[in-house]
Amino acid sequence: MPGLPHSVMRKSWWKIACVILLVYAVVGGLLLPVPALRQLEETIRNLYYHVCMWFAMMILFTVSMVYSVRYLRTLDYRFDLYSRAFAVTGLVMGLLGYSTGAIWASYTWADPNNPAYASFGTIAREPKLIGAAIAILIYFAYFVLRSSITDMDKRAKVGAVYNIFAYAMLFPSIWIVPRLLPSLHPGQEGNPALNFNDIDARMRMVFYPAVIGWTLLGVWISTLNIRIGLITEKKWLHE
């Protein structure tokens, strides 16, 4: 069978690894020491959760795009199934990243009692938020587009082409444009959390395992959707 070997999807070792990493991300993330930073204070721990959502989203969208390319090369319907499942989970992670970011920002950027903090008007103009919203909306359009086409082959083909376009649009909307404009969001001059100079060594000990853990959770959910799809779409797959 091409693509993800079925046996790997059903193996449990990487699911156990996922659970261990997530437990470590919660326990270590809340209990291990973090640097004391003004304004952020204890909320810096959100790095292990909020930022991980975006990392997981990016990885899942990349996997989804790769399967779209493979679909277009082989026209094997299975790859379309894979590509869609990874995009769905990626979108969920993106929405979680966006909403956790909204909560975090409302405590650390906006404060009417503190003139040093930004107003809500400034936050509404925040390029990182607008860029992320555009990226998420483009992926929403992917699902709207898919569900609007009834012909299976056409849906898979148009969906795959659009998915590659949506992936390409991620780069200007969340990576490039927000960095060209002034922003309250940290990591203006580089890759937030990836730069070895601006992330504390103690935090890296938790952050990297947390990224892997949350990503594996996304992969687990995606493979469940894929396996269900492989069963329900069986009659189309064995022609």
Binding site: A36, I103, S106, A110, D111
Partner: peptide, 19 residues
């Protein structure tokens, strides 16, 4: 709820307040 979120905290100068 939004107002509550906005007004729920205040930060001054002084030492950094950790939990």
């Amino acid at each position: 709820f939004c107002l509550l979120l906005a007004g729920a905290q205040d930060a001054g100068q002084g030492p950094v307040e950790m939990a």
